[in-house]
Design a protein around this nucleic acid. Structure first.
Length: 663
RNA sequence: GCCGGAGUAGCUCAGUUGGUGAGAGCACGCGUCUCAUAAGCGCGGGGUCGACGGUUCAAGUCCGUCCUCCGGCACCA
């Protein structure tokens, strides 16, 4: 029996769980379940990432100590798992003692091998993305990634000698072509590696909510060193007792780290580098999936288009949601999450094709065969229609087995549904309802219903990883009460004749409402957004079409004096041209009333230079000069944008002269 | 700008190493059975396979150029 260790990302507790989190968990769950059915000794891990400055501050805001805050929010993630039917074997929190011990053990190992040194880091730090932002990338002292204000940090810091691992990592990539999948991500990582690596700052002194650095408790560890190590902690790393050590020997290295495409670099470069430095085995594979898009856009809190898994479970049921996400997302690519698409999949695939098939097959057996699986007649099983179907079922078992283990869930389901269609066709060809009326054709009747039921039984066994509850219900209706059949021995023709069927009931009743009606219904019934706790880690998404009050921008207020330090002035664009070789930059000559100067603005993707000449804009007049793509910029142009979308210039509703102060 | 990916029916997409007249699902129209969740089954309409060249007996399938979209990096005062 081989073992299989799969992980989800550990979820950062700064927001409510959304569909993206749920998707990672569900995919890992399906694959874990499949491996169990294949007879593997599976270890399936998920959990929460709870340290860092963001959490420390959120806790402050909520008026509670970080550990209590973490307890409350982590519970939300943990509580979601049962409603997803997640079959995880462990749930790890980075705040647990076992994890502290493990991370410190890893640190010592890396340090003792000479890959950690103490240095000084002075720079701009974004607390949202937990990264230092190079001076040259700052946008008005704001993080270029998330747009939030960055902070000046000059502090002593420990560094990890990441630069030393460029070549070892490249070697590893070449020796293990499937180390990172899909290939797109692997290629990205290869080019990133080839460009060279900077050493990585891996500790902080500016906050305390983290794991202390061994022998230097003034430092806490940088989030990724802490977080990534969870994968080893749960396997038993860093523990002294013999049982844990045995477990670690058995389960490490992990077979799969399943992640979203936004954290590939951390998993495919930082993590393996840490492990190489510690002289520990690397995970076998980093598998990354795409994003669920709402109307083609990434889900985000500020757009209020975050899909909450609970809403969909309520409307369609968990298994319908699972079916949809597995079936609809070609693994690795982005996919659209549209209510209409779920409804279509539900009615067409689940209700019409599958649910109705189970219903018609079992009903006929109840009526015509006294509710017992009829015994097929060997000679009739040899007819072409029966042969073809059973051969196809045998092939299907192999196809699904192969597809699931390489994360091709959508193709596995597509193949299963093809056989479902075949079975519907088979029933039409045999017309058992007619056979039932012909006393001299009872053998044909029994054989045809047996073949249909037997096929459904295999299908149900194959559906277990994807839709566990549906699979169980189907098998119960077919009278199969045995434990899950091993996928190693599953085969057509093994349904036992004579067993009593269970009662038939619709698996997926058709949904006749429109999407709009469904939304209304769930708005009425739904218990007010379940936020019983006093921890608004993030403001709840505003209801669409309602101008929600900007939820108390409690994020660090400033005084009026602070604001007045910023000299905002009206200016007129005198000339504009593209900065050569740049995609985003325009070089502007502007008249600020007091002087004429050059300002470089990152708006080239939204504005043609010609269209800007003569235009009135707002600039920050007293910003420190900076060089961008070799051009000195003296100030900055104000523009609004939605979630990093195209910038929209600030303007006035009547003409204003250059030089006027804006406040 | 560099690197990578993608552009195939109204929509979402399959199309292996180039070779029977270009496919599936959904949606739409017609027909049909009646066991079943007004479900099933059959038939049909619709596509210059992004554009233009090229290689070849033969190209969505290979090569070149271009256009559009997406992603990574550079970059984003």
């Amino acid at each position: 029996m081989s073992r299989f260790y799969i992980t989800t990302p550990i979820y950062y507790i700064n927001a409510e769980p959304h569909l993206g989190h749920a998707y990672s968990t569900m995919v890992a769950d399906a694959v874990a379940r499949a491996h169990r059915l294949l007879g593997d000794d599976v270890f399936f891990l998920t959990g929460t990432d709870e340290h860092g400055q963001k959490v420390e501050r959120a806790a402050q805001k909520a008026g509670m100590p970080p550990n209590r805050f973490a307890d409350v929010v982590a519970a939300k993630f943990r509580d979601l798992l049962p409603s997803l039917h997640a079959s995880n074997d462990d749930f790890i929190r980075t705040t647990e003692p076992r994890h502290h011990a493990s991370v410190q053990a890893l640190w010592r190992r890396v340090r003792d091998r000479g890959h950690i040194y103490k240095g000084e880091y002075a720079g701009w730090y974004c607390t949202v993305d937990e990264v230092f932002v190079p001076e040259t990338q700052l946008v008005d002292r704001r993080c270029p990634i998330c747009g939030n204000a960055v902070e000046r940090i000059a502090e002593e810091s420990y560094f990890f000698r990441l630069s030393a691992f460029q070549q070892p990592l490249l070697d590893h990539y070449r020796r293990h072509p499937d180390f990172v999948t899909p290939t797109v991500r692997r290629n990205e990582m290869m080019t990133f590696l080839e460009a060279g690596l900077d050493d990585l700052s891996i500790s902080r002194t500016s906050f305390t909510w983290g794991i202390p650095v061994p022998d230097d408790p003034a430092h806490v560890m940088y989030v990724w060193f802490d977080a990534l190590t969870n994968y080893m902690t749960a396997a038993g790393f860093g523990s002294d007792d013999a049982a844990s050590q045995q477990r670690f020997a058995r389960y490490w290295p992990a077979d799969v780290h399943l992640i979203g495409k936004e954290i590939v670099r951390q998993h495919a470069i930082y993590w393996p580098a840490f492990l190489l430095a510690a002289d520990l085995p690397l995970p076998r594979q980093i598998v990354s999936h795409g994003w669920w898009l709402m109307d083609g856009a990434k889900m985000s809190k500020s757009k209020g288009n975050v899909a909450r898994p609970r809403d969909y479970i309520e409307r369609f049921g968990l298994d319908a949601l699972r079916y949809f996400v597995f079936r609809e997302m070609v693994f690795g690519q982005d996919a659209n999450f549209a209510d209409e698409a779920i409804l279509t999949r539900y009615n067409a695939d689940l209700a019409n094709d599958f649910g109705n098939l189970v219903s018609r097959a079992t009903t006929m057996i109840h009526r015509a065969c006294g509710g017992r699986v009829p015994a097929p007649v060997a000679s009739l099983l040899g007819r072409p229609d029966e042969q073809r179907l059973q051969e196809k079922v045998a092939r299907l078992i192999a196809q699904v087995r192969d597809a699931v283990t390489v994360f091709q869930l959508s193709s596995a389901l597509r193949d299963i549904w093809e056989v479902i269609a075949d079975t519907n066709r088979y029933i039409v060809v045999r017309e058992p309802w007619k056979l039932a009326k012909a006393a001299d054709r009872q053998d044909e009747l029994a054989t045809s219903l047996y073949v249909a039921a037997d096929t459904l039984r295999v299908i149900a066994e194959l559906l277990r990883p994807f839709m566990p509850a549906t699979a169980e219900r189907t098998l119960t209706m077919l009278g199969v009460t045995a434990e899950a059949a091993s996928w190693a021995t599953l085969a057509p023709g093994t349904l036992v004749a004579g067993t009593h069927l269970g009662d038939t009931s619709p698996l997926f009743p058709r949904i006749e409402q429109t999407v709009e009606e469904l939304r209304l219904m769930s708005n009425e019934n739904s218990n007010p957004p379940t936020v019983p706790d006093a921890v608004p880690a993030s403001p709840p998404a505003p209801p669409p079409a309602v101008a929600a009050a900007p939820a108390a921008a409690a994020t660090g207020t400033i005084t009026i004096d602070d604001f007045m330090k910023v000299e905002l002035r009206i200016a007129r664009v005198l000339a504009a041209e593209r900065v050569p070789k740049s995609k985003k930059l325009l070089k502007l000559q502007v008249d600020t009333g007091a002087d004429q100067r050059t300002i470089v603005a990152g708006i080239a993707e939204a504005y043609e230079p010609e269209a800007l000449v003569g235009r009135t804009i707002v600039v920050v007049a007293n910003l420190q000069p900076a060089k961008l793509m070799g051009v000195e910029s003296n100030g900055m142009v104000l523009a609004g944008s939605i979630d990093g979308g195209p910038p929209v210039l600030v303007g006035f509703d009547r003409d204003m002269p250059p030089g006027a102060r804006v406040r």
